[in-house]
């Protein structure tokens, strides 16, 4: 087995208003490995997720991550006027795929998260739970080697959580889940870590 980590964080720190959010973090995530980082509200889990995804720079430390990864934000934003399939095709097109391949990837993600009934619906008409499924589907678009899930249980019913667990069990993706303790996300992963608050 290849022991080169897919995600490697070394002494990562994040600051908000000159205050460190959490203690320096070291993390190695191997291909196919699934890890839960737990921490209470306000500790900087979302900030850390954004750092891992390259959406924000860390205050200190370095990281190595795959070029293509999926991200499930805690508070997703969508173009509400678009239809589900059109939106997913558009996202696939951002990776410079031919139109036919974009459509194929969109249909694959739709099937994966059982969004078939909502394919022709505009996003604004979807319930919060269905939007969360769409949020997950767009992260799985293009079959990335790593997915970062920020509180994925939000608005998902039991069936949805079961489906997510199934997908993670069947898939080859490495997965980093960030959630507060006691949210049921521990069923999604193999290892659990705690995010420690920064010492004053």
């Amino acid at each position: 087995m290849d022991n080169a980590p897919l995600l490697h964080l070394r002494g990562i720190e994040a600051r908000r208003r000159r205050r460190s959010l959490f203690a320096p973090l070291d993390l190695r995530l191997l291909p196919g490995e699934r890890c839960l980082l737990e921490g209470p509200n306000g500790l900087g889990k979302t900030t850390l997720a954004q750092i891992v995804c390259g959406l924000r720079r860390p205050a200190r430390g370095s990281l190595r991550r795959p070029e293509h990864l999926g991200y499930v934000p805690q508070e997703p934003r969508f173009p509400e006027h678009l239809k589900v399939q059109d939106y997913l095709s558009q996202l696939a097109a951002l990776c410079a795929q031919p139109s036919r391949e974009c459509l194929r990837q969109a249909q694959q993600a739709i099937a994966l998260f059982q969004l078939q009934d909502a394919t022709r619906h505009r996003i604004r008409t979807l319930s919060r739970g269905w939007k969360q499924r769409l949020n997950l589907a767009r992260a799985w678009l293009g079959d990335p080697p790593l997915v970062v899930l920020d509180e994925p249980q939000t608005a998902l019913d039991r069936e949805g959580m079961n489906r997510l667990t199934e997908i993670l069990d069947q898939g080859r993706q490495a997965c980093l889940v960030l959630a507060p303790p006691g949210t049921g996300c521990e069923t999604l992963v193999q290892t659990r870590l705690s995010l420690r608050p920064a010492t004053a």
Partner: peptide, 18 residues
């Protein structure tokens, strides 16, 4: 407002298509 810049950043390395 619809979150396109984030999705673009995640998917397009050079970011010229959007």
């Amino acid at each position: 407002q619809q979150g396109w810049p984030m999705e673009d950043r995640l998917r397009d390395r050079r970011g010229w298509r959007l």
